[in-house]
Nucleic acid binder design. Structure first.
Lengths: 357, 357
DNA sequence: CAACCTTATGCAATCGATCCCATTCCAACT
DNA sequence: AGTTGGAATGGGATCGATTGCATAAGGTTG
C-alpha cells in the first residue's frame, strides 16, 4: 500500500495535523513528538505526495521552460543551466518545444498554467506577451530570455548581440582590415538585425561604409553558409576578413574554407558568433563572440527564483513591471585573426559589456 | 477570481458532477446540457486544474525524462523527440539531468515519483534498476534507453553499437583496407566496449588480428581525439583507414587531419560514429554510422505510451518483464571513404539491422 | 483555589475535480 | 393503474496534505 501522512501519523501515534507540522518544521511541535514522527516517516519510507500539497498550498515546485528547440547550442546550454539551478532549489523543470510557432507557444503556456507551474522561463517568439501577462496576473512568475515581447511586463534577460557584433568588427578593424565580409541571418530575425547593426556601426565609426558586395544575409542553415562563402570568395577585390554572425551558417562556411585552401588567418581573418567546442578545436582555433548562453540561463533563473520567493511573502500583491538585464557578449581571441599587414600589433583583452537597459 | 468547475456549473445552472461529466465527454449527458456547459465553460474561459484532477484520478499527464546532459547530440536529439511525442499525446515532460551520477539519478527518480509522473524515460547510468523496479510496482511506467540495468524489469530500447561498428569496419575492409585505425571510448563505458567488439569482430572475420599500434581508447573528449590521431599518424606503416568510434574525440580528430594536410579519402579513409550536421557539411562529407537517436527516442515513447494505455485498462495488474528492442545502426556513405588501391569498386547500400533481443 | 496564559495537539474544513450511489423523471409494458 | 427500466442529474465522499480554530494539559499568579 502507498504510505501517506495518515500512515505515518498512526505509526507515530499522533494526528495527521501533528505529523504534518512535525515534518514541515513548524515551531509549535515538541522536540520528542517531532523526533517520533520523523522516525516513523523514515521507518515507513514516507514520501509526501507533492500533488496534494500543491493543490492545497498553490505551490507546485514546477517551473516551465519554453524554447524553440534543443538542437541549437545556445538553447540547450540554457536548458541545462536552468534545469541544474532549478533542481538545486527544489524545483523541477517542465520542458516545452515550440518550433518558434506562436500558436504552439501559447498552447504550451496555457498547459503549463493548468499544471500549476510556479514560474516560467520563456525563450520565446515574442508574440505572446499578452498571454504571459495574464499568467503573471494569476501569480505565475515569468522571465523572458533573449527576446522580450513588446507588450510583456515580465522581466527580461537579453543578449548583447549588437555589442558583440561591434566588438568582433572593431577587433578586425583594429588589425588593419578594411574589406570585412559579413555573413548573417535574415533581417526579420532579431539576432540578424542586431548583429548587422553592430557590424555597420563599427564600420561607420571608422568612417567606412558597408559594402553590399561583402554582405550576405540569409536563413539559419549550413547550406546558406556554403553558398554565401562561395559567393564572397568569388568577388574582387577579395575581403581580407570575415565576420560570420549566422551560427548555423558557420557549419557550411568552415568546411568550404578548408577545402578551397583559404589560409586562416593568412589569407582571411575570421570571427564567428556563438562559442561551441568545435570552434575551439578547429585548426586554427577560431576567434569567437561568446553570447554567454550559460550566463543568460543563470541570470534568468536567479530572477525567477527571486520572484518565487517574493510571491511567498506578499501573496497577490501588485506585480511591478520587470526590468531588463543584458548579458554582455565576450570576444574570445584565438588563432583565426591576424593583422592585415605584417608587423601589426595584436590588441589584447576580451571585450565585455554588462549594461542594464 | 480563478474560474473552477463550480463557477462553470453555476453559470450553466447544473451541478458540479454534471458539469464535470459534460466536459469529460461522458455518454450519460443529454446533448442540450452538454452544449450549455460547454458554452458556459467557453464564456468563463474555464481551464481545468490538472493538479486536482491528477490527485483524484492518479494520472498527472506528466512523464519524466532522465538523462546525463543535453550537450551530447544523441541526448538532446532524443529529448526533442520525446518532448514532441509526449506533447502530441497530451503529456508534459519533466526534465532531469544527472551528470551520470547514480545518486543524483536516484534522487531525481524519487522526486519524479513524488510529483506523480505517469511514466519515465530513462537514459540512465544503469545503477538504479532497483529503484525503477520499485516505481514500476507503484504503477509508474518505465522505459530504459541505450543502457539497461541488469536488475531492471522495465522494457529497454538499445542502440546497436556492435553492429554499427561492425558495419563501419566491414565497409572499410570491403574497400581493400587492412591497416584500419580505431579511436574509441574507454572500455569501462558501454559504447566503448561494444564498438570495439564490433571492430574486432569484423577484422577477425577476415582473418585479421587487431593491431595494438593502431588502437587508441580513451575519454570522451576532443582533447583525447587530438592526441590519439597525432599518435596514430606517427606510427609506421601508416594506417590507410580510420574508424573514429568516440564521438567527442571526432571534434579533435577532424581539425587535426585538416591542418596536417592528410587528404581524405586520398591518404586516409574515414568513418565516424554518430551523425551530426557538421559531418555532413564537412569537406569532404564524412561517412558515418548513425546510431538512430531519433528512432531511439521515438520507439521509447511508443513503448511508454503503450504502457500508459495498458495501465488505464488494467489498473494494478501484474507488470510483466519488459522486452528489449534494438534500433539498428545505419552506415551512411558519403565522401570520406575510398578504395585503397585505384580502380576498386565501391560497395553500395547502407547496412541496417533491426533485431529484437 | 480560581482565573489565566502558554504550549502542544486534534478536529475538521479546504484546495478542485472525479465518480459512486441515490434519486428523479418519463416512457413502456403487463 | 401499477410496475419496471432506462436516461439524466444531483449529493457527497474522496484523493493527500495543509492550516485556522478549538481545546487539553501544565504552569503561574493574585
Amino acid at each position: 500500500m502507498r504510505i501517506g501522512l495518515k500512515e505515518v501519523a498512526a505509526e507515530a501515534g499522533v494526528s495527521r495535523s501533528t505529523a504534518s507540522r512535525a515534518l514541515s518544521g513548524s515551531p509549535l511541535i515538541s522536540a520528542e513528538t517531532r523526533a517520533a514522527v520523523e522516525e516513523a516517516a523514515a521507518r515507513l519510507n514516507y514520501r509526501p505526495n507533492r500533488l496534494a500539497g500543491a493543490l492545497r498550498t498553490r505551490q507546485s515546485h514546477l517551473v516551465g521552460l519554453v524554447l524553440n528547440n534543443l538542437i541549437n547550442a545556445s538553447f540547450h546550454t540554457i536548458a541545462e543551466v536552468v534545469q541544474r539551478r532549478a533542481a538545486a532549489e527544489g524545483y523541477q523543470v517542465v520542458l516545452g518545444i515550440t518550433d518558434a510557432d506562436p500558436a504552439r507557444e501559447k498552447a504550451f503556456l496555457l498547459t503549463l498554467a493548468a499544471h500549476g507551474v510556479d514560474g516560467i522561463v520563456m525563450i520565446g517568439t515574442g508574440k505572446n506577451g499578452a498571454t504571459t501577462n495574464a499568467l503573471r496576473a494569476e501569480g505565475v512568475a515569468v522571465v523572458n530570455v533573449i527576446r522580450r515581447p513588446i507588450d510583456s511586463a515580465a522581466p527580461a534577460v537579453l543578449a548583447a548581440d549588437r555589442e558583440g557584433a561591434h566588438a568582433a568588427t572593431a577587433h578586425l578593424l583594429d588589425l588593419g582590415h578594411e574589406r570585412i565580409g559579413f555573413i548573417g541571418g535574415e533581417p526579420t530575425a532579431n539576432s540578424g538585425r542586431e548583429r548587422f547593426a553592430g557590424y555597420e556601426q563599427a564600420l561607420r565609426e571608422r568612417g567606412l561604409d558597408p559594402d553590399e558586395s561583402l554582405i550576405e544575409r540569409g536563413p539559419f542553415t549550413p547550406a546558406f553558409g556554403t553558398e554565401a562563402i562561395a559567393r564572397l570568395l568569388g568577388r574582387t577585390p577579395r575581403m581580407t576578413a570575415l565576420f560570420a554572425a549566422n551560427h548555423e551558417a558557420v557549419f557550411g562556411i568552415l568546411p568550404t574554407l578548408a577545402s578551397t585552401g583559404v589560409a586562416i588567418p593568412g589569407d582571411l581573418s575570421l570571427v564567428c558568433y556563438e562559442d561551441i567546442p568545435w570552434l575551439r578545436y578547429w585548426s586554427p582555433a577560431i576567434t569567437v563572440v561568446d553570447n554567454g548562453a550559460s550566463e543568460l540561463g543563470e541570470l534568468a533563473m536567479n530572477l525567477l527564483l527571486h520572484q518565487l520567493k517574493q510571491a511567498r511573502g506578499a501573496e497577490n500583491g501588485e506585480t511591478p513591471n520587470g526590468r531588463a538585464y543584458r548579458v554582455g557578449a565576450q570576444l574570445i581571441l584565438r588563432d583565426s585573426t591576424a593583422p592585415r599587414a605584417r608587423g601589426g600589433d595584436r590588441p589584447s583583452g576580451p571585450t565585455a559589456a554588462a549594461v542594464e537597459a
